[in-house]
């Protein structure tokens, strides 16, 4: 996952719809590379047929 520029991050932040202050955006921008690393690790290559662990049951309980 390529690093995001501040301009790109600001677009992502605007898309969230959250009322973020400048200081809050600064904090989240600082930690964003760590989040990207986590997202990349969680989505590391896996077999195309790998199923999620969530099961949908049409019979509502």
């Amino acid at each position: 996952m390529p690093p995001v520029t501040r301009e790109e991050f600001d677009i992502l932040a605007a898309q969230t719809g959250l009322p973020l202050s400048q200081a809050q955006k600064d904090t989240l921008f600082d930690v964003y590379p760590t989040l990207q690393k986590i997202l990349t690790t969680a989505a590391a290559p896996m077999p195309r047929e790998a199923e999620p662990s969530l099961i949908f049951y049409p019979e509502v309980r």
Binding site: P2, E8, I11, L12, A14, Q15, G17
Partner: peptide, 15 residues
Amino acid sequence: MSEISFEARVRATGL
């Protein structure tokens, strides 16, 4: 949903 341009939203997805 947001006030940013559609072009900017697409750029942010990497598509």
